[in-house]
Design a protein around this nucleic acid. Structure first.
Lengths: 123, 123, 123, 123
DNA sequence: GTGGTCTAGACCACA
DNA sequence: GTGGTCTAGACCACA
């Protein structure tokens, strides 16, 4: 049995995750200005340094651009959202697949299950 | 954006989770004796009381039977494993579906993605 | 002669027992808030963990409902008290019967004794 | 709520209790020799001092008679058994009555319950 | 040796 | 402030 227990992911990672989801859902668009670090910190009730870290990482990833004295902006890149969406979808699907396989399900069974659940809620 | 960050589940819950997976994978079978509380605690490097809690919860759930002075045993119930497997599969599928929907995918797109990933790794 | 001496029941069980009796006597009513774990621990001079155990067991039994940050409440279930009262009465009567039989009394003699004592104190 | 938890009765008291029950059931009779202290201690897996204490108390109560170098004997008293039986019955009935009253039952209800249980098992 | 109970005390999560 | 989790460690009950 595993000896390492799941720890929660770092808060700054969860923040990046959240911003990516908002991008995907269209709640942020390329070119938009993100809330200031201070504002964000207050809204999320988190230490400003945590926001700083999140914003910095996003810049490193090429997701945002910080303009000193002005603010942080989502990059104006046409394929940005599409890329993130695909990346997150892929990760989600792979996680799901791995989990189902660890439960002993074969790919066809996985599809069956998925179909069952989706059709069930479609009704 | 959400203001509540994901916390890790309690260790005792993760232990139960792990034992269920071992059951599903056949690494434990109904009737088997689980490692003693102390042994398990040592192996997983947690406090014996934490194992006690996990074992007690499993007994309450009807998954195991603890006999004082003897040990803790997986219940001899033919449908036990099947039930757990289905329960865990269902939860996993629902989580996956919810996550994909929060990324803006429709059910058909979810299926497409799944197909793509599975077929990709089949090659 | 028996070789096994009677042991006292666990403290957490005695606490549950006491709370059930208070419910039956109307000293607690469905919907009431129980004293907090810490308060109860202080009043009964036991460790808070022991109260936690009692409260948790009562929740598992469906007797109470614990709400984090709020407190622990007796469930709002009309038949709860009645059910507990009957359960405890039945157990008490059965214990009594078993004890009298172990003293060699037949059922009619048991009734005679009971009548005698009750009438005696009625005077 | 009560603050004093039930402790188990002293072992020597439980031993006296057991011997009284054997007397009542006729497994010992007036004039019988009790097992030696050593023998009794071995049979009950108890410290010989505990037996010593039990035997001493029984002598004080007038239940037995120790003859140095010979052994301990149940007293030859025609009314002894009858007296003990009545004493134990009375205590048992009173305990039962007190318990039922603490559950809020009136004497007639107590009788009803008793009748119900006895008749139920008579069938 | 195995499970069960209890204490003392720390720290977290929720409000 | 209220419940929940976890550790460290003692001691008991059963076999």
């Amino acid at each position: 049995m595993q000896k390492n227990f799941q720890k929660s992911r770092a808060i700054y990672e969860q923040i990046i995750e959240g911003i990516k989801k908002m991008l995907i859902r269209g709640e942020f668009k390329p070119g938009d200005k993100l809330p200031s670090q201070r504002e964000m910190a207050q809204k999320l009730e988190v230490n400003p340094n945590t926001i700083q870290r999140a914003y910095r990482e996003m810049e490193v990833m090429g997701l945002t651009e910080s303009r000193r004295g002005i603010g942080t902006y989502i990059k104006e890149d046409g394929n940005l959202v599409k890329g993130i969406k695909e990346e997150m979808a892929e990760r989600s699907v792979k996680n799901f697949k791995r989990e189902m396989e660890s439960l002993g399900f074969s790919p066809p069974e996985i599809k069956d299950w998925l179909k069952r659940i989706i059709d069930l809620e479609k009704t």
